[in-house]
């Protein structure tokens, strides 16, 4: 029994192991493709800013699990929100992210993304990468947290120098909601107000 069981075990480990590493290189390629698409969008000379926003929004929603991220950011306050509030919040959150990132397009100066590796982390895959600055600045470490949906991946979090965007926004939203009598509407209003400022600043 011993020998056969051992062979079966080894075979199983090999299969699982190789599948895992395949999955991870798939994740790395996913991030490479995402970076390439984002870069070509940023450096596209012919497209106007509103056009770029529309295309960035599409890329974002294709590669990031935006509705699930939005829900995760609200956390325990999600059940407190009405259906209309949820929709208004998801829309405001999505728009906020689009403006936050597209507003940075103009300060792009030749940086590239170098994908360094990946590892499994529970139900997620983490892809590690660095932004390389050709102007001599220190590299910025980016860790992407991915979830596998079917054959494809979706990004659910981005860590910049070990600071998680999802966790940061989750804390920030929670604080705002708590300080406004646990009202989700207060968050929606604040997001829309911040959007108005962002739009006024860069358009």
């Amino acid at each position: 029994m011993g020998a056969i069981a051992r062979i079966v075990l080894v075979a199983a480990v090999l299969v699982v192991g190789s599948r895992a590493s395949l999955a991870e290189s798939g994740a790395e390629n996913f991030i490479r493709t995402l970076a390439d698409r984002a870069l070509s969008l940023v450096t596209e000379p012919s497209a106007s800013m509103p056009e770029k926003r529309v295309r960035f929004d599409a890329l974002l929603n294709e590669t990031f699990d935006m509705p699930a991220i939005g829900r995760f950011l609200l956390g325990r306050y999600w059940p407190l929100a009405t259906q209309e509030q949820r929709e208004a919040y998801l829309k405001a959150f999505n728009e906020n992210i689009v403006y936050t990132y597209t507003n940075r397009f103009n300060s792009y100066s030749g940086q590239t993304l170098s994908v360094d590796g990946s590892r499994e982390d529970g139900q997620f895959v983490i892809v590690t990468s660095r932004i390389i600055d050709p102007n001599g600045g220190p590299p910025v470490v980016l860790d992407w947290r991915l979830v596998k949906t079917g054959d494809d991946y979706k990004v659910i979090d981005l860590k910049i120098e070990d600071v998680s965007m999802s966790i940061t926004l989750r804390r920030e939203y929670a604080s705002l909601i708590e300080n406004n009598g646990r009202s989700v509407q207060a968050l929606i209003d604040a997001l829309n107000k911040s959007m108005a400022t962002l739009k006024a600043r860069n358009s």
Partner: peptide
């Protein structure tokens, strides 16, 4: 996993 908080994450 390295971040227990993401246990709450529910993909779409």
């Amino acid at each position: 996993n390295s971040s227990g908080e993401f246990d709450e994450f529910v993909p779409s």
